[in-house]
Design a protein around this nucleic acid. Sequence first.
DNA 1: TTAATCCTTCGAGTTAACTCTAGGTCAAGC
DNA 2: GCTTGACCTAGAGTTAACTCGAAGGATTAA
Lengths: 135, 135
Amino acid sequence: MKTYTISEVAKELNLTVYTLRYYDKEGLMPFVERTPNGNRLFKESDISALKVIECLKATGMPIKEIKTFIDWCSEGDSTLEQRYNMFLERKANVEAQMAELKKTMEVIQHKCSYYKTAMDAGTEDIHKNEKLAKV
Amino acid sequence: MKTYTISEVAKELNLTVYTLRYYDKEGLMPFVERTPNGNRLFKESDISALKVIECLKATGMPIKEIKTFIDWCSEGDSTLEQRYNMFLERKANVEAQMAELKKTMEVIQHKCSYYKTAMDAGTEDIHKNEKLAKV
DNA sequence: TTAATCCTTCGAGTTAACTCTAGGTCAAGC
DNA sequence: GCTTGACCTAGAGTTAACTCGAAGGATTAA
């Protein structure tokens, strides 16, 4: 079975070795085995697990909460419901983020056309009559 | 013209007075005037400006960069192009974030059904044959 | 054998964005 | 006139998530 060193994994996941060691220190990688002299030995399944961790991070989940999830995974089938509920919560959270980002996008697009018009006119005064922010 | 105190503005924008003072300290609010004894006096237009600042924050822009933008605003029409370009960049950035979030959502949804199936079966072993992450 | 290049741990340092404390001013109400 | 409460500043403290340095061990290549 193919294995990987920490720097190979770092490269693959676009992280630094420092970050991976930090995750390990925080208890996010209890499954990673070691060589006789102590070097971390990553399996394919470890990389998959790290990808899930990266996904949870992308939802804005703090590392301590990700650790709770990893602990549940280690505990086995008795925590299936907690894990399921956690992903449902993450789903709701990401949906909220998407909605927020959509609103943000609308303002940004509005600003783009505001500045396009102002730039073409050479002055922001073109918008004087609108009750808009001065920034 | 109606004006507002710092705590009224904080309430309106869902921020703390500490945060608003911090923004001021960082140069994000050079337009806010003061009463003779030094209290900040916010106008409607200041609140609009703060909403734009919150929008930029929501795009993930760091406060130092927002300050650059605020400085450009103070400089007037000569910086219209920079400001326009900045908003174009922000737009691209938000689009990237949306794409990223969509990918994240797909993984999360997959995990939701994974755990639903496992929970209903009472064991994660139901997924044994798939080459999936063990977390 | 020696140098380079991995890897290790431990613990300190960094950065951003707050968050709060201490000590002080000022206006309103009793 | 005094207390209460909102405001002020300067600067210290907090937190998360890295990020790095020092000191040292193992493997490989000339």
